[in-house]
């Protein structure tokens, strides 16, 4: 994989993921409301809303999610990660928390961790949802950046089942 291509992917994805994390944290208790979702996914390609899982979280987790969002926006990745880890100790099977931690790890350049954590997020999701798609996007790019071309291709294949807007 060429270095230039790497650059390109990094640039494109850091933009997309910046939106991702904020969306993940924006709506208390749920993963992004439809208006948030509309921002990076064209309306025609949005997944069936009925399939969107209801991810309600206890207020304690929501409070930590919000703080993590602030920290992440301020570029304090370590602090954001610490807050998300605290939230995970309260709610270890929360797919949004795992996803957001994966995004923080991605931003820290820890692609293998981003990959594993996004998969962990997927494990706690059923059906087909926007969050699943975002996890696969993150996995694909993390693998690409970690030099795992074959793994990235597999993730893209999964991504393609979500429709044309696969984030590439």
């Amino acid at each position: 994989m060429s270095a230039r291509r790497n650059e390109w992917i990094r640039g494109a994805l850091s933009l997309a993921l910046a939106v991702l994390l904020v969306a993940g944290c924006a709506a208390p208790g749920t993963y992004g409301d439809p208006t948030e979702r509309g921002r990076d996914v064209p309306a025609t390609q949005q997944p069936d809303k009925a399939a969107e899982p209801e991810l309600s979280a206890p207020p304690a987790v929501v409070a930590l999610l919000e703080q993590a969002e602030e920290a992440s926006a301020a570029g304090e990745h370590d602090r954001a990660a610490a807050l998300l880890e605290r939230a995970l100790r309260i709610d270890p099977r929360n797919a949004v928390l795992w996803h957001n931690l994966a995004v923080v790890r991605y931003r820290q350049g820890e692609y293998a961790q981003a990959d594993s954590m996004a998969q962990r997020s997927l494990q706690h999701l059923s059906g087909r949802s926007d969050l699943q798609k975002r996890n696969w996007q993150l996995i694909a790019v993390s693998r690409e950046l970690a030099g795992d071309t074959a793994g990235a291709a597999q993730a893209r294949e999964r991504l393609s089942t979500f429709g044309a807007a696969s984030g590439q």
């Binding site: 370590d78 990660a81 610490a82 880890e85 995970l88 931690l101 293998a112 961790q113 990959d115 594993s116 954590m117 998969q119 962990r120």
Partner: peptide
């Protein structure tokens, strides 16, 4: 989890790591 100096300055953090 974390180590700080006596004044609370963060020195190191041992973050959650997950390998599938």
């Amino acid at each position: 989890r974390e180590v700080t100096g006596q004044d609370g300055t963060p020195l190191s953090r041992y973050s959650l790591a997950v390998d599938r």
